[in-house]
Simulated assay, not measured.
Amino acid sequence: MEPTIYASYEAAGVVVIVVAACLSVLAVTIAFLTGATRTLARKDTHLRPYFISLLLANVIQSVGTIMNARWVRHGYVFGDRFCAVQGALKHAGNIATAVWAFMVAAHLFHLLFLRWKSTKAGLYISLAFGWAMVLFIVLLGPTVITKPKDGPYFGVSGLWCWITPNYPREQFFLEYFLEFVSAGVGFFLYSAILLRVRGNLIKTEGKWHLRWVPRGQSWQLAITRDYIDSAIVRVAAHMVWYPIAYSLLLLPIALARMTELAMNLPPWVTIACDFIFNLNGKTTPHTFALSVLSLSFFPSGLINVILLVTTKRLLPDTNVLPTFSTPRKALDLSSPEAVGITPFTLTSQQTPQMAERRIVPLVRSDSNSSFSSVDSETPLVQSQSTRREYSIRQS
């Protein structure tokens, strides 16, 4: 591949990327040193190992990006062994981030939606499978897919090193497609968890039902929750931001790359890319502008650490909760037991003063010290001393 010579604005943009990647590594390092991930070590869950794997993936991703400093120093990108290593690290970091973002979402879905027990054997299998999948995809290109006529698999790719433009389908299907699937499925899983623990999504008579209630009547959703759902509902509402943040980090740079690859991709991808932005296959100020746009969101490690810090204050103490494998008690809202369930509220025609008039107070008789009741039809007019005596009598 021909070297990519930096223009002045391109070098400045790559510097911003390097700084963002340094912030990610710094944030993850601080999170490990301060023990921020220990808050995820909850009973009956294995969320901490999965999240640590996600942070390690962010570190690999950021290290590959920090290596751009060499190209800034030289003023251009050229193919050598260092370039191939950077391409492999960037590819591995991106794939690992997608895999472990999905794993975190799947684990929470497994616990909070399905209420299945989490085992150590399942944890070890998932960890081994996840990292083996990352290693397999990264090695697949240079060992199986690469062709002598197309040149090296990892090499100069625009402003840095990655999968070379001679392998456009591999760029899309072995990275961007997996990233979009991870973001989309993750958003679906988190949304399903939130709807389930809130009570919007219920299962009655073997069928799933999605129900919505008017604003101000959320008590109708609360009656379908058990103790675990009630403790988790705020956490679930916050966790939906994880796939949203991941999508915001992914979308700009993916769109910039796809517009550059559009001429060599299948027709349906070409049409989608042209609809997004009509560009040629070369690096231009427009594609670079899209890349720079992604830089302000690129430090995924920093974003994940911020979300971790803001999430931990919402996490309940699972030591006082029932085990997550406790099945939900089925509640059929159409059953006779559920019909007529209403909250304790005053009607619009009933004021607190009117409710007080229904109380039949006891007053002291003049003839003796006993208490006698006042006729319920008599208007309720009590002196302060009578109210005090009534309160004492009721106590």
Rank of each mutant, 00 (worst) to 15 (best):
R70N: 13
R70M: 11
W71S: 12
V72S: 06
V72L: 14
V72E: 08
R73T: 03
R73Y: 14
G75F: 11
F78V: 15
G79R: 04
G79N: 13
D80Q: 07
D80C: 07
F82L: 14
F82M: 11
A84K: 04
V85L: 15
V85E: 03
G87T: 01
A88R: 04
L89S: 04
L89V: 08
K90W: 14
H91Q: 15
H91M: 15
H91P: 03
A92V: 12
G93F: 07
I95A: 11
A96K: 12
T97Y: 12
V99A: 08
V99Q: 11
F102E: 02
A105R: 03
A106Y: 10
A106M: 11
H107F: 05
L108I: 05
F109T: 02
H110V: 02
H110R: 12
L111C: 13
L112Y: 07
L112I: 05
L112Q: 03
F113I: 01
L114D: 01
R115A: 06
R115L: 09
R115Y: 03
W116M: 08
T119K: 05
T119F: 04
T119S: 06
G122Y: 01
G122T: 00
Y124I: 04
I125D: 00
I125G: 02
S126N: 09
S126L: 03
S126K: 13
L127K: 10
A128S: 12
M133F: 15
V134C: 15
L135E: 09
F136V: 14
F136M: 15
F136L: 15
L139T: 10
L139N: 09
L140H: 11
G141V: 05
G141N: 06
G141R: 10
G141K: 10
T143Q: 07
V144Y: 11
V144N: 03
I145V: 14
I145K: 05
I145A: 04
T146I: 06
K147P: 00
K147H: 02
P148G: 00
K149A: 09
K149D: 03
K149M: 04
K149F: 02
D150K: 12
G151Q: 02
P152V: 06
G155F: 04
G155S: 08
V156H: 06
V156R: 09
V156S: 06
S157Q: 04
G158L: 07
G158Y: 05
W160G: 07
W160L: 14
W160Q: 11
C161M: 10
C161A: 08
C161G: 05
W162Y: 13
W162S: 13
W162H: 11
T164N: 03
Y167P: 06
P168S: 01
P168K: 05
P168T: 00
R169G: 06
R169K: 11
R169S: 07
R169H: 12
Q171L: 11
Q171E: 02
F173L: 15
L174V: 02
E175G: 09
E175N: 08
Y176H: 12
F177V: 12
L178N: 04
